[in-house]
Each structure stands twice: as structure tokens, then as C-alpha cells.
Design a protein around this nucleic acid. Sequence first.
DNA 1: ATTACTAGTAGACGAGTAA
DNA 2: TTTACTCGTCTACTAGTAA
Lengths: 236, 236
Amino acid sequence: MLKRETDERGGTCLEEEMEGRLILALRKIALMGGMHDYISISSRELGEALGMSQQSASKRILELLGQGWIVRDLGARRQRIKLTDKGMEALRREYSEYQRVFETRDHVLVHGEVVTGMGEGQYYVNQEGYQEQFLSLLGFKPYEGTLNVRVLQTDVHKLALLQGVKGIRIKGFERNGRTFGDVLCHPADIQNIECAVVVPTRSHYEDIIEIICKYHLRRTLGLKDGDVVEVRIHID
Amino acid sequence: MLKRETDERGGTCLEEEMEGRLILALRKIALMGGMHDYISISSRELGEALGMSQQSASKRILELLGQGWIVRDLGARRQRIKLTDKGMEALRREYSEYQRVFETRDHVLVHGEVVTGMGEGQYYVNQEGYQEQFLSLLGFKPYEGTLNVRVLQTDVHKLALLQGVKGIRIKGFERNGRTFGDVLCHPADIQNIECAVVVPTRSHYEDIIEIICKYHLRRTLGLKDGDVVEVRIHID
DNA sequence: ATTACTAGTAGACGAGTAA
DNA sequence: TTTACTCGTCTACTAGTAA
């Protein structure tokens, strides 16, 4: 059974919900300029702005006063309302919740199992034409080998997110008549060790990702085939 | 009387409020990772996170589905939930409301009465040492005179806001043995005409502001002493 | 364990109205 | 005009329970 503030009859209106309704009114008042100043607004007008009756708006104002979120100068004709510091703080709390939602798309976490590749990645990474760019664009010269990770079934679809991300493009080149294509890298880390996920541009979708790092990751992290690692791929 | 969506019995739950409650649940789901991915969450857990019963959380989920804000993969044991594009859009709309609140401190409106100054501002403004800087830093060469405005009592405290603002600093200089101090300007407009409020750095608090503009404001706006003008002072 | 229906109820709502 | 009280309606809530 749920705890409510004072009692627990079967009724409605959790504290949180009630706060939600109040915040809505508070935000409207803020938008009308109540953050900077007293604004002159009747309960009728506030009600209209909030899509509710004058009576309900009046009640909301009383509730906001009760919370200490606004102060009021109840003149003879028209009331003037202003947010208090406490009210602004309450509003900012809400705002930061949304910030957390919208400004935390900075990484994707994928889990995968360490596997042994076929040495192809290693061959590519060691090409001199790539090496220089790794250093200048990623900030490190990769250890001569890649760590192959088979992304778990549950996380495979997360890789699709990388499609919509610019990443860091390593230019291809030609050498001894063979063409080496562009390579897209995504900065990442495994247990806070800086690395990068390498995606050959022209490759169809795979569940195996190749990771380059300035250290020998298998040795540094003591990994063996079948171990599951968490890779944090940075985007943006 | 207020319009509601379907009917207008005396009851509760405006559309807007209902949306507010839904948005709260939607945000929680988003914070739990439902923006990027399906997350596995029972109605019991969601209820706990939202401070409500399992039953209510279950209902919320059905409502969110009804709005097309989430999609659900109702497995045998646990449901998996993800936000739809429509859901993210709804959430972003909310977010932008808060952004408007917190990121719209870009101007202050002050009202004041046009008065005749003592020509001191005019003397300062016309100094060559200032004129060049006005042009390069404000983008216009002021008309040789200032408009003096006595800020109304009700708006005087708004001027205090300018204290916390950088503004545009015009460097002082020395000429004929006399020192002209730094001058702080705040870009502004009066009836959409670009101008700037001038505040001598070393001056105590006054209720009279001096305004420079490339036009002769009195003539252009047809102002005479005692007319009340609205000055929009830009900050940041 | 889940999800979600039914039933009963507390309280949020607007209408009417006083001050 | 205002603000805000009382009051009856209606609904969003939780408990109980089925599947």
C-alpha cells in the first residue's frame, strides 16, 4: 500500500500529482513575467490561460501561496503576483528534469562478449595511411590490434543509433593498387579507458564491433573470450 | 463556461491537466532510458517511481498508448516500453516551455517619462573619443543628443537588473587634461527603433536614463516632455 | 510473479453566490 | 468589477481480484 502525506483513505491526489498541477500554474505565471516582477493578473485571466475556471484558478493561487512559491499583493481591484525564490527553485527543479532527459544523449551503452576476430581489423588498423589520422583525429595511436566484441542480442539495435551520428571520419587511401575505404570511428570507453569503435564505411550491419585503443585491452583489462564488457560509445 | 473536449458535465480533468499527468509519467519513462530504447519496466515499478499504485500506473500506460506516445512490447512476463517519436515530441514541447521560462531573460521593459536633460549627456556623447567606439561597438553613430527618460516609480527597481549584466563597455580617454571615464551601454529599442541606454560607470543610482540613437528620437517618434515611452533594454 | 478489470470513495472540479 | 466561499457532481484514485 502506498504512503501518502497525512492519511491514507482511498482517495485521490498524491502529493506528487498535486505538485504537478501547481507547477503547471507556476510555469504559466512565470511565462507571463512573474519571474522578474509582480504581474497584474486576475484569477479569471489565469484561469483562462490555464484552461480552467476562475474558481479553480483562485484556488491554485491560494495553493501556490500556501507552498510559498508566490507572493501576492492583493490590491483593492487587481492582485499582483510574483514568484518567490522558492517558487523559482521549484520550477528550476522541473526544468532540470527535462534537461536530464534531453541533454543526456551523449552516449550509448552496449554490452558484448569478447571474441577473437579474424585479424582483418588488425590488418586495416596497421595501415600507415590510417595510423596518422588516428593520432590526429582521435588523439591516440592505436595498439596494433583490435578488440572484437559481439554485441549482445538485447543491445544490437542500439548500434542503429550510430547511423544518425556523424562520428569521426578517417579518410581512405590507395596503396599498392589496393583501395582502403573511409573508416568511421566513434569515441568510446571501456571501464573508463579511452578507446574508439571502428566501423568500416562500406560494410553491412553486423553484431560485431571492433575497438581500437592505445593499450592492449585484453591484457590491460584481463579479458578473455566470452567475457562480457560494457562499451560506452560517445555520440555528438 | 469552459469548453471541454467531449462534454461539459461539471466534472474534473481538463484535457490540459490530463496531459500534465501523462507527461509526468512519460518523462519518468524517458528518464529511465525509454527514449533510446525499449526498457523493461513493470507497472508496479513505474507506479513506485511515480509515487502511485500499480493499478494507476497500469492505467497511465494504457493512456500513454492511447495517445500514441509510447509503444509496448507486452511479453509473457514483463512488458517493454519505448517512447514513440510523437511521445518525444510531446516531451520536447514541455521542455521548450521551460526553456522559454529560463532562457528568456533577454530583455527588461521599463516605462518612463520623457524629460529634458541638462545637456550633460549631449556633451559627453559628442566627444570624438566616444563616437568611434559607438559606431564599432553598437553599430551606429548616435545623433548628437540624448533622450532623457525618467523611469516610472513602479519600474525603477528593474534597473537594478542591469547591474548583473555585462553590457557594452565604451573605453574612457583623456583630452585637454580632462578625464572621460568608461561608459557602459545597454542595447535597447523604443518602438522597435534600435538605440542604447547609456550609464556612466561612475554614477550613483538614478531614475533617469539617457538614450542614444542614430535618429533624433524626439522628432522621429514625435515625443514631447511628459510622454511615456516603453524602453526594451536587451541583456545578455 | 505479471496486467488490468470492477467497485467504492475522496477530492478536484465548476456553478452559484457573498463580500 | 474583483476574490473566494459553499456545495453537488464527477472522476481519478486505490483495494480487491481475475486471468
